[in-house]
Design a protein around this nucleic acid. Structure first.
Lengths: 244, 244
DNA sequence: CTTGACCTTGACGCTACGTCAACGTCTCTA
DNA sequence: TAGAGACGTTGACGTAGCGTCAAGGTCAAG
């Protein structure tokens, strides 16, 4: 039997057979005068054994160990571990499918999808309306949602909910629009103080406190702003500090 | 933000971040004077986006496509395909776990395990009793079980069942033992004709017909036999042919 | 000035083979 | 007897998503 015949008999590729030789799973057979591998029934029997175990899902390393031990004692143990592993995989896939199903339910499926359902709701209410500022803002909310620990996340969601109420959403969009408008403005632009005042009036104290808590965080946020926007937010911070 | 800080923020390794740069999933940020990557919030937002999609199970290639399209239209399609794929995986795992459970039920778990339940029964009844001939014979039955198409398999099982009946099993083991005994014997040994006659008496005609059907198959089987055993089986074949 | 923590690029490792490449062997046929 | 075509040989790269050195540069602190 040449390698192609053996492979066809057992139902694998010749590459697979050679691979098993390389790994020592299958002994190299004698060679013909021409250098071809000459297989016998024993080889087919062995190869079939390997395939049966492989099709169960054992790794080739595990198969080698099992065949080396030869006894059924170790095999039973390996199979149990494998079953546990498969059970975990099934569970993980189930979880992912549940998340997928929830996502597919959503009417909008934007770049910031795949966040938690609660944050998804907030983001949908605040809707990406083409505003550059809104995009960054909502991206950061999505970031927060994926990296914050559960309690911080809950806290943030509670703090955000007021913005999603009808009547308030429109004000938020108006702020986004005004921030976009002044993006390229001069730092001394006359519209800035009014915008800062309006923003400060809409941001609750607790949110402000949390935001300005970390110096580095604030630096990172300010680094994303245009000079004019930065001026506005420095004024907002000042106003909120005075107020609190 | 340096790479380590970004990675910690989003919850990945620095290697992962660099990998995403390499794949073009994440744009390379500016560098500090010292050559360090200097990240900003936008990068964290983007990285979090990538991670959310990756954790859903999308491949990095798919993520790049989805982010390139930017629209939710394609994302929905990709997610549906992914869900189908996961459903298939779940089913496959379920099948494997069922086979595993069946296997773990079995009291004996030998080298030829993981065959079909029916063949498992036959092999258990014929039990590996240390006979070298029995080992090869039963290995070949296992091979047959894994490579034959369903109808041939059914046929073989029906033809084998008589051997597993109480009263017959003992005769089978006796034959195995006698074949082992004469393994190294002279081709002219006086025990050979009797053994051949006894074997022929126990092998039904249909099985004999099937076995001798393929020339190559017979060659492969004979190649596994010692000279004395080969003599015996040539006599068996002759006897069965005369009888049929 | 040194230490130690961080950064840089480059490259190999992992799983289970698929897929060339470049070349030898064997069988069949003109 | 030569050539074609089917098969075999070894060697090496590719896959997915990073982990893990290696060999070295940068930076803040003591």
């Amino acid at each position: 039997m040449l390698i192609g015949e053996l492979a066809a008999l057992v139902g694998v590729s010749t590459r697979t057979v050679r691979h098993y030789h390389h790994l020592g799973l299958l002994p190299e057979p004698e060679r013909t005068s021409g250098g071809y591998r000459a297989y016998r029934m024993r080889d087919a029997v062995l190869l079939a054994r390997v395939r049966r175990l492989a099709e169960l899902g054992l790794s080739l390393d595990e198969i080698r160990d099992v065949l080396a031990d030869d006894q059924g004692k170790d095999l039973r143990e390996v199979l149990r571990e494998l079953d546990d592993d498969l059970a975990r995989q099934q569970e993980a896939i189930g979880t992912r499918r549940a998340r997928l199903a929830a996502l597919l339910e959503e009417p909008e499926l934007g770049a910031d999808s795949a966040v938690s359902p609660e944050m998804g709701e907030v983001l949908r209410d605040l809707a990406p309306d083409g505003s550059a500022f809104a995009q960054l803002d909502q991206g950061m909310l999505a970031l927060l949602d994926t990296v914050a620990d559960p309690e911080d996340r809950e806290w943030a969601l509670r703090a955000l909910r007021p913005f999603t109420e009808p009547g308030v959403v429109e004000r938020v969009h108006e702020m986004y629009a005004r921030l976009d408008e002044i993006a390229g403005a001069d730092p001394g632009d006359s519209r800035l103080p009014a915008l800062a005042a309006d923003l400060a009036a809409h941001i609750p104290a607790e949110l402000a406190g949390a935001m300005s808590g970390s110096e580095e965080w604030m630096d990172l946020v300010f680094a994303e702003l245009t000079p004019a926007q930065a001026v506005v937010f420095r004024q907002v911070v000042a106003l909120l500090k005075k107020e609190g």
